[in-house]
Design a protein around this nucleic acid. Structure first.
Lengths: 219, 219
DNA sequence: TTATATTTTTAGCCTTGTCTAAAAAAATTA
DNA sequence: TAATTTTTTTAGACAAGGCTAAAAATATAA
């Protein structure tokens, strides 16, 4: 079907389109993939020929319907494998990304159908990110960034924006994971830091932490 | 560590060494990998430089200790994944080879340690082939080819030599799988065909079938 | 608007792994 | 032993995917 490199480009562009809006620049792709802009130009020209994205010189790219579908398929596989690694093989949520990065390229429709069933057709991966369905459709969740929650409000942690091992390990130390209830006890306007309560513990978190945690507010 | 192509060559050579003995010819490798002898020469020169095998021009190759270890590691991964596919995802034994062919190249020590544990540290794959241990050591089993079993003797099917879907499907139709007891009721010297009993059924099998079934005779 | 800076593309080269065609070595046959 | 066939290697080419350096287009500043 598609080469490993092609799949990785499509995935990266898909993520960029969801993060920002409109067309995506060559440089943005290069940066997100840790490669050189000239390599990106080469590849997007190939992907444009295959109608996976539209591309005009100097004007950036935009995924076509089929490009989006391929990308969502890769992301579906990535996230299902992450669920497998955490739920079945007892990996910790900060250890699974690299392995899933490889597993996402295994080619077999049937494998993913069966893996999904085996895992009970999960809707979210261990970081709280939604798993695209078999048609590539992402369930949109009403999640907010913790830093946007007001004083005296509460939310349930539903995901993380950043998923570096360092950050995930910090969250573990503070006993924060998917499903954890967080109360905002105080908020400092000057630097965006917060005092929050998790379980029976109250502690301080910086703006940097608060802006990388997704919560769902309960009505 | 090693590239996909390197791993595949090492694996193919490892299998050839176990099947025949002594040094392995360029042509034999090319045939087993469905590639051209010139490509094989290129690759074995690279592998020789990396000390994964010894090679003298026109004299064939032989895996070194480390070459064998790498190959056994790949085979271990292949067979563990096959067990996973059959036991956990309910694949049929004739459907798993191609997928395992991809999964065997996933790089993660920890993944295999945990997968092995999750599967209950199996010793054999769904075709009855032994799974090398973490040091690359293969349990040798005392298996014979069914065609070598004498009249009025019985054996338990422990594996297959050939594992094409066609052959495995034939075996299914005849209700033969790993663990099935087989009685040799008659044997024709002219063409090597046999009359066997499986469960309550008695039927004829050709020499071609009999020479591709491994059985363990019971004493 | 012109000059400067940034972004993007092009051109050319490299590596991996493959191939075909031709040359060289080894094995076989007469 | 000489001639022929088979096997193996070498030489040269190609595609994928990456890189650097330079050119071209666009954006920004004076």
């Amino acid at each position: 079907m598609f080469t490993l490199a092609e799949e990785n480009y499509l995935k990266a562009i898909f993520h960029l389109e969801n993060e920002f809006q409109g067309e995506i620049s060559t440089n943005a792709i290069a940066e997100s993939m840790e490669t050189k802009p000239s390599s990106v130009t080469d590849m997007i020209q190939k992907l444009a020929e295959k109608k996976l994205l539209t591309y005009k010189r100097y004007k950036g790219v935009q995924l076509t319907g089929s490009g989006k579908k391929v990308a969502a398929g890769v992301i579906r596989k990535h996230r299902l494998w992450e669920v497998f690694l955490v739920e079945k093989l007892s990996f910790h949520w900060d250890e699974v990304h690299e392995i899933a990065e490889q597993l996402e390229h295994i080619q077999s429709e049937e494998l993913i159908i069966r893996l999904d069933k085996f895992l009970g057709s999960p809707d979210f991966d261990p970081h709280g990110d939604p798993i695209p369905d078999k048609h590539g459709v992402l369930k949109r969740t009403e999640k907010k960034i913790l830093s946007e929650i007001d004083k005296n409000q509460k939310g349930v942690c539903v995901g993380v924006k950043e998923s570096s091992p360092e950050f995930l390990q910090y969250l573990d130390k503070k006993k924060i994971s998917i499903g954890t209830k967080i109360y905002v006890l105080g908020k400092e306007f000057f630097d965006g830091s917060m005092i929050i309560q998790v379980g029976s513990e109250q502690f301080f978190i910086s703006h940097k932490i608060a802006e990388n945690l997704y919560v769902q507010t309960q009505e």
